[in-house]
Design a protein around this nucleic acid. Structure first.
Length: 203
DNA sequence: TGCCAGGCCCTCTTTAGGGCCTT
């Protein structure tokens, strides 16, 4: 059985910001972290059945010609549903990725059992003095080595995973807990900024 | 780099508005 505190850190590239406005996923990237080690990776382009805008081509480097012969969203998301089965999930600004995960899995009548935690909400509390809380800024702020090639799904999920692990190490120094439970991370994300220290001291 | 949406957060708030973050 998977450990409840094993997580899959995931990132979608999409045609836009809102599945309710007709936007679709075009790439999914994810890494599985078990006992602090990356033990699995997933990356696939997928054909959304619509042309992507010039803005998205420029933003991601993913072109219409790259997607032309990619497998369908349905095929890729079916494999991805298997990859995340039984694991809790992490994403940077998780509400965005959760909307696309829910929409794409709903299209193929699949579900998932894991819960989401958001690395951006945790970072706002653990790194309150960062210049901002964009993924790229936080990676630099936490001194995580990076070649700067953001906005591809696997790369961003790897960077978010390293940020997640860096925040876990920071939190560990502020508690007496030998390991930081996933539920505590979810709780940190929902705790008012000025109450986080007290929460950790009493955990 | 922007627009589109939505959830969270802050404040000159709660009968609200606007910034952040994701593509």
């Amino acid at each position: 059985m998977p450990n409840a505190d094993t997580v899959v850190v995931l990132d979608f590239e999409t045609t836009g910001l809102s599945p309710t406005m007709g936007d679709r996923a075009i790439e999914i990237g994810a890494v599985r972290i078990e006992n602090g080690e990356i033990t699995g990776r997933f990356q696939e382009l997928m054909n959304p059945g619509q042309r992507i805008s010039g803005f998205i081509e420029d933003y991601t480097g993913i072109t219409n010609s790259m997607l032309k012969h990619a497998p369908s969203c349905e095929e890729v998301m079916s494999q991805f549903a298997d990859f995340i089965s039984g694991y809790n999930l992490v994403a940077h600004n998780a509400s965005f990725d959760k909307r696309f995960l829910d929409a794409e899995l709903s299209n193929i009548s699949r579900t998932y059992s894991g819960q989401f935690a958001c690395s951006m909400l945790v970072a706002r509390r653990i790194y309150p003095h960062a210049p901002d809380h964009k993924l790229g800024t936080l990676v630099r702020y936490a001194n995580i080595p990076s070649d700067g090639a953001f906005h591809r799904a696997l790369y961003d999920s790897e960077m978010a995973a390293k940020l997640w692990q860096a925040m876990l190490r920071t939190i560990e120094k502020q508690t007496v807990l030998p390991e930081i439970p996933f539920k505590l991370l979810q709780k940190i994300a929902k705790t008012p900024k000025n109450s986080v220290r007290a929460l950790l001291e009493h955990s």
